[in-house]
Amino acid sequence: MTTDKPAKAPMYQYIMDDIKRKIETGRLKPHDQLPPQIDLANQYGTSEITTRRALSELVLAGYVYRIRGKGSFVQEHSAPSEAQAMREIYFVHRDHDATNFNHPFFTDMFQGIRDVCMENGIGFHVWDMGEDYALPEDKQAGIVLLGNPSFDLSRLAAWQTEGRKIVTVHFYYPHLGIPYVIVDNLTGGYLATQHLISHGHRRIGIILTGASILELNQEFSLRLQGYKLALSQHQIPFDPELVSVVSGEVESTSMGRTGFKQLMALPNPPTAVFATSDYKAMGALNGARELGLIVPEDVSVMGYDDVLISALTNPGLSTVNQNTRKLGERSAEILLFELKDAEVRSVKDEIVPALVIRGSTGPVME
Score class of each variant (00 low, 15 high):
Ala141Trp: 14
His170Arg: 00
Gly210Asp: 01
Gln218Leu: 15
Ile213Tyr: 05
Gly226Leu: 00
Lys228Gly: 13
Tyr227Gln: 00
Asn217Gly: 11
Asp239Leu: 03
Ser150Lys: 13
Ser212Arg: 11
Leu231Gly: 10
Gly200Ala: 09
Ile178Tyr: 07
Met255Asp: 05
Glu215Asp: 14
His175Pro: 12
Ile213Arg: 08
Val245Cys: 04
Gly147Leu: 01
Tyr173Gln: 04
Lys228Cys: 12
Leu224Ala: 02
Trp159Lys: 05
Ile213Leu: 14
Pro136Lys: 05
Gly142Asp: 07
Ala141Pro: 06
Asp239Cys: 11
Leu222Val: 06
Phe171Asn: 10
Ala230Asp: 03
Pro179Thr: 00
Glu162Asn: 04
Ile207Tyr: 01
Leu214Ala: 15
Thr193Lys: 01
Ile166His: 06
Leu156Phe: 09
Phe171Thr: 05
Ser252Cys: 11
Leu135His: 07
Val181Ser: 08
Val183Arg: 12
Ile166Gln: 08
Arg203Glu: 06
Gly200Leu: 04
Ser221Trp: 11
Leu145Met: 08
Leu135Pro: 13
Gly188Gln: 00
Tyr173Asn: 06
Ser221Arg: 15
Leu224Asp: 00
Ile207Lys: 05
Thr168Ser: 15
Lys228Met: 02
Leu242His: 03
Asn148Tyr: 12
Gly200Met: 14
Pro174Lys: 02
Glu219Gln: 09
His234Leu: 09
His195Pro: 07
Lys139Pro: 13
Pro149Glu: 06
Leu146Gly: 08
Glu219Trp: 09
Arg164Gly: 05
Ser150His: 13
Glu241Tyr: 07
Gln140His: 12
Gly177Asp: 06
His234Ile: 12
Ser247Asp: 12
Leu186Cys: 07
Glu251Lys: 11
Phe238Gln: 06
Ser198Gln: 14
Trp159Leu: 04
Ile182Lys: 10
Glu162Ala: 09
His170Pro: 03
Asn217Asp: 15
Pro136Asp: 02
Phe238Ile: 08
Thr193Gly: 01
Val167Asn: 14
Leu191Pro: 03
Ile166Arg: 00
Ala141Asn: 03
Gly163Val: 15
Val250Asp: 12
Leu216Cys: 07
Val169Cys: 06
Gln140Tyr: 10
Ser232Asn: 15
Val144Ala: 10
